[in-house]
Amino acid sequence: MIDTTTRIGDVWNVQATTGIESHGRVALLDADGQVLVQRDVDLEWVRHGGSEQCGGPSTAQVVVELP
């Protein structure tokens, strides 16, 4: 489940609750809500903090460029 989305320039950060899958879908929309590009993505989560046993904060990065 998506909790928060923030934008800094061309970078969007999306925070989500635990249980996020390793597959997702990313879509870029124009100002009118029309889909410019849409892709299925594989997410490689990297844990930074916490422990292997208990988990912890993790990040995954996806880069999407306009054609």
Rank of each mutant, 00 (worst) to 15 (best):
H48N: 14
P57F: 12
S22L: 00
D40I: 04
Q53C: 01
R39C: 00
V41Q: 13
V63H: 14
V63W: 12
R47V: 00
A60F: 02
D3E: 07
V64H: 09
D10V: 01
L36K: 14
G9L: 02
V63E: 14
C54H: 12
R47D: 08
T4F: 01
Q38C: 07
S51E: 13
M1G: 10
V63F: 03
V63Y: 10
G50D: 11
W12C: 04
L43P: 06
V64Y: 06
V11K: 08
H23S: 01
V64I: 15
A27I: 02
D32K: 14
G49D: 14
D42Y: 07
D42V: 01
H23P: 04
W45M: 08
E44C: 02
W12L: 11
V35Q: 14
T18Q: 08
R25D: 07
R47N: 06
V41L: 11
C54Q: 14
L66D: 13
L29W: 04
H48E: 15
E65K: 08
T5C: 05
R25T: 05
R39H: 13
R25H: 08
R39Q: 11
A31K: 11
G19D: 08
L28F: 03
V64L: 14
Q38A: 15
L28T: 09
C54W: 13
D30S: 02
R7T: 05
T59M: 08
G9W: 01
L29V: 02
T17H: 05
G55H: 06
L28Y: 09
A31P: 03
R47F: 01
Q53D: 14
V46I: 04
S22E: 09
A60N: 08
T6E: 08
V37A: 10
R7D: 03
C54Y: 09
Q34M: 09
R39A: 01
D42I: 00
A27E: 13
T6V: 00
G50T: 05
V14T: 10
T59R: 10
R39W: 09
T6I: 00
D40A: 07
Q15A: 05
I8G: 12
I2Y: 04
P67C: 03
L43D: 15
D30T: 00
G33Y: 11
A16V: 07
D30W: 04
I8Q: 09
G56V: 00
G50L: 02
W45F: 00
V26R: 13
N13M: 05
E21F: 05
I8H: 04
I20Q: 10
E65I: 01
L66Q: 08
